[in-house]
Design a protein around this nucleic acid. Structure first.
Lengths: 204, 204
DNA sequence: CACCATCGATACGAGGTCGTACCGATACGA
DNA sequence: TCGTATCGGTACGACCTCGTATCGATGGTG
C-alpha cells in the first residue's frame, strides 16, 4: 500500500513493454495533469506535453493510443486520498483535520476538477477515472470519519445533516473561487467547519 | 428594471445598427448558451450556432466581432437573478424559498457554470460577464435575505455561519452532480436547508 | 420607384491538432 | 559482439475552426 500496487512480479527478466522507467512515466502524467489545470482539457495538446517533458510525440502515442486514454492513465496514476488516515479520536477533531488536509490540496485539486468538469460529461471513461482518482476516495474517507463518530456514540446514525457532509465539503471548496475569487485554504475551511458543519451536527 | 435597460431612445427613426429584431438576437444568445452547456466553451463553433439558428456566419461576425465577444454578449443578455424578490416574512421561510428557486434552475445554470468554469480563468472579460450574469445577482439576493433576517432580529449580525451561506448554497448545487451523479433539485436543496443550514444558524 | 445596407450563403486562407510514418541513435538481451 | 526494439525527432496528410471576402437577394428609406 506504499505507492504502486503492481499486478505481478514484473521485476526481473519479464520484458517490460517499454523502456520507460516508472519515474519517467510519472513525469508524463504530472505534465499532462498540470497542463490540464492550466489550459483546460480541450486545449491540452500531446505536442505540448511532449515538449514540456522533452520526449517525442511518438513515445506518447506508442504508450497510450490516444489523448483521452493518455489522460485517463494519468488520472489513474494518482488514485490516492488526501483525507485517508485521519484519526484524532473525536469526530470534531477528525473533521477539523479533514478541513486542513482539504485546504492543503484545494488549489491543485480544484483546478483539475474544474478543468475536467465538463469534459467528463462527454467521455464516460474519463468520468470514471476522475471519480476514482479525486472523488470517491475522499468521499469514502469522509464517510469513514463519520462512521467512527457514530460508532463512538458522538452522533446518532440517522442525524439528518450527516448525509450532506461530503457535498458540503466538496461544495465550499469548489464554490469559494466562484464566490470569493480565491481558493479555499486551510484557514477558510477550518472556520467553515467550526461555524457551519459542527453546529449543524450539534457538536458545539 | 424589468428586462432590458436601454441606453437611450432607440425606438423611432434612429437607424438601428442591425435589421435583427431583439427577439432574433435572443435566439442567437439562447442557441450559443445551449451549445456551451452541451459541448463546452472550447467546442462551441460559430458555424454550429449559425446552423442551429439558420443564420449565416457572416451575420454573427458582423454583429459580434469574435467568438468570445459573442459569448459575452449572450451572457450579458440574461443578467437576472433566480433568487430576487423572495420575501416570505421570515429568514427560515426565505431560505426555504431560495432553495426551491435554486432547485428549479440548478440543472440549467450548473451546466453553464461548469462549462464556462475553466474558460473563465483564461478570459477576464468572460469572467466578468459570467459573474454579472449568474453569480453576483444570486449572492446579492442571498445577502439581502440574510440582512432582513438580521434586521428583524431573527439572528445576530455577527453569527459566524452567516458568512458561509452563499458559498454553501452554490457549493451543494455544484457539488451534487460530482458526489451523487445527479443535479440538485428542489427536494434535495430543501432538505439540505432543513438539515444543515437552518440548524447551523440556530433556527432549528 | 430607386437606392443601399444588411441579410443568408459560400468559398477561402491561415493556423493548429490529431494520429501516422519514417528516420537514425542507442541501450538491452542473446 | 550482434540483433532488435524502443527511444527522440520530424515530416506528413486529414481534418477542423477562425475570421474575411464575395456574391445575389431583399426589405426598408428617401
Amino acid at each position: 500500500m506504499t505507492s504502486q500496487a503492481a499486478d505481478g512480479p514484473e521485476s526481473v527478466t519479464a520484458s517490460r513493454r517499454s523502456k520507460l522507467t516508472p519515474e519517467r512515466e510519472q513525469e508524463f502524467f504530472d505534465a499532462v495533469l498540470e497542463q490540464i489545470r492550466e489550459c483546460g482539457y480541450d486545449a491540452v495538446t500531446m505536442e505540448g506535453v511532449a515538449a514540456s517533458t522533452r520526449c517525442s510525440k511518438s513515445t506518447l502515442y506508442r504508450q497510450w493510443r490516444t489523448k483521452p486514454q493518455f489522460v485517463v492513465a494519468a488520472l489513474r496514476s494518482r488514485r490516492r486520498s488526501r483525507l485517508a488516515g485521519i484519526d484524532t479520536g473525536s469526530l470534531a477533531g477528525d473533521l477539523r483535520e479533514a478541513a486542513r488536509a482539504a485546504g492543503r490540496w484545494s488549489t491543485t485539486d480544484t483546478k483539475l476538477l474544474q478543468a475536467l468538469g465538463h469534459a467528463v460529461t462527454q467521455d464516460e471513461e474519463l468520468a470514471c477515472a476522475l471519480r476514482e482518482a479525486l472523488i470517491d476516495p475522499e468521499i469514502a474517507a469522509l464517510r469513514e470519519i463519520l462512521r467512527r463518530g457514530v460508532d463512538r456514540g458522538e452522533i446518532r446514525a440517522d442525524h439528518p445533516a450527516l448525509e450532506y457532509i461530503p457535498a458540503q465539503m466538496f461544495g465550499v471548496v469548489r464554490a469559494r473561487p466562484v464566490v470569493d475569487g480565491t481558493y479555499a485554504d486551510e484557514d477558510y475551511l477550518l472556520r467553515f467547519v467550526e461555524a457551519a458543519v459542527l453546529p449543524a451536527l450539534g457538536l458545539t
